[in-house]
Simulated assay, not measured.
Amino acid sequence: MVERLELEAFLTLAEELHFGRTAERLHVTTARISQTIKKLERHIGTPLFDRSSRHVELTEAGRRLHDDLRPAYDQIEAGLQRAANAARGEREVLRVGFLGAAAGQLMVGAARLFDRRHPGWRALPRELQIVDSLRRLRAGDVDLLIVSLPHDEPDMVTGPVLFSEGRVLGVSCRHPLARRDSVSLEDLAAVKMLQVVGGFPDYWRADRTPDRTPCGRPVEPGPPFETLQEALALIDADEGAFVMGAQVSRFYARPGVVYLPFRDAPPLEWAPTWVATRTSPRIHAFNQAAQDAAARGSSGPRGQLPDAPGR
């Protein structure tokens, strides 16, 4: 008979691939997690993880077990939570993660619309940081995340574009480029490009922090950062530059930072994403509410930057 802790330990370790973080999430000791996994492996009769001093990886048997268990476990957990909520007279919560003020503004409006349409449910917007947003989505800290494209993760589903915005280059007011009215992608060769900390996929880095211009000129890497405020502080200090959405000029104005629009870069598009095995009617319903909220805030079919409430 497999115990609940064995399932939780296995599924959490399969996501984290780290015994310490798994123990923290489950509020037990690392030794308890190790013992629990060994017990489960004895019960099944085969190793589920390859372990070394440097890394933890799923075995082929572990991957198959994870793919079989994850959907069923999530469904059971959701059913138990719904029953508990109903017993307490509470509404079922959908946690919606977002990055940046514009996406947050849209999510608040979408949450209001979602709540009015579905009295038994409630949407809870939560701001995340870019450095750990995908990890937290996979870990289940949020059910849905609004991301900037490109986004192509095999285990995730990407919904329709909600809004788009032009790209700008954030530079120090002391940088020579700051005297211009606009920039080209070729001008990236004249700056040090700040680097986002974390294991972001190559396709995202190529789009947002390229190492070469379209004509092949090298782009010098700059200091790393974890949050937008860190990036703006580095730009203000003339330590580097970064490509951002035009929303920064509205929501993150700073005297020492100049935002220069690109003449030749495609717009940034924002869309919802979620883990494929956790698809639910709530997610589809919220996506519809978000699309409707975005459409109400603009005249375009996809929307531009969402207007402020009441505008």
Score class of each variant (00 low, 15 high):
21 R>G: 05
32 R>C: 00
45 G>L: 12
307 D>P: 00
303 G>S: 09
111 A>N: 05
39 K>N: 08
84 A>T: 06
18 H>C: 12
96 V>R: 03
266 P>L: 14
181 D>S: 15
130 I>G: 04
208 R>F: 03
123 A>K: 08
264 D>E: 08
212 R>Q: 10
91 R>M: 10
38 K>F: 00
51 R>Y: 05
8 E>F: 04
137 L>G: 03
94 L>C: 12
213 T>W: 07
76 I>V: 15
156 M>T: 13
124 L>C: 02
1 M>K: 09
93 V>W: 05
37 I>M: 08
120 G>E: 13
244 M>L: 15
84 A>N: 09
208 R>N: 09
292 D>G: 01
268 L>T: 05
196 V>A: 13
118 H>A: 05
75 Q>D: 06
116 R>F: 10
51 R>A: 12
262 F>G: 02
111 A>E: 04
172 S>C: 05
299 S>P: 00
48 L>D: 01
202 D>K: 15
29 T>A: 06
75 Q>W: 08
274 W>F: 12
265 A>T: 02
113 L>S: 08
193 M>K: 07
221 P>N: 00
118 H>I: 11
88 R>I: 00
77 E>W: 01
50 D>H: 13
64 R>F: 01
66 H>C: 10
27 H>R: 14
289 A>M: 10
120 G>K: 12
43 H>I: 09
189 A>R: 15
34 S>F: 02
12 T>A: 10
11 L>D: 00
246 A>Y: 10
30 T>N: 11
204 W>E: 12
246 A>H: 07
81 Q>I: 06
259 Y>P: 02
289 A>Q: 00
8 E>A: 10
8 E>G: 02
288 Q>C: 14
187 D>Y: 03
264 D>R: 09
210 P>D: 04
157 V>Q: 13
271 A>S: 15
305 L>P: 00
2 V>H: 02
113 L>Q: 04
180 R>K: 11
206 A>M: 09
284 H>R: 12
181 D>V: 05
43 H>N: 01
150 P>H: 06
137 L>H: 06
210 P>M: 07
7 L>C: 07
25 R>P: 01
3 E>K: 14
181 D>F: 04
169 L>Y: 03
237 A>W: 06
170 G>S: 15
248 V>Q: 03
19 F>L: 14
81 Q>R: 15
85 N>S: 10
262 F>Q: 03
307 D>F: 08
151 H>L: 04
147 V>C: 04
80 L>T: 06
275 V>W: 02
141 D>M: 09
197 V>S: 14
62 G>E: 07
100 G>N: 11
24 E>S: 11
303 G>Q: 04
67 D>K: 12
240 G>C: 07
134 L>P: 00
169 L>I: 09
16 E>M: 11
282 R>D: 05
86 A>Q: 15
234 L>I: 04
306 P>M: 03
132 D>L: 07
277 T>M: 11
10 F>V: 10
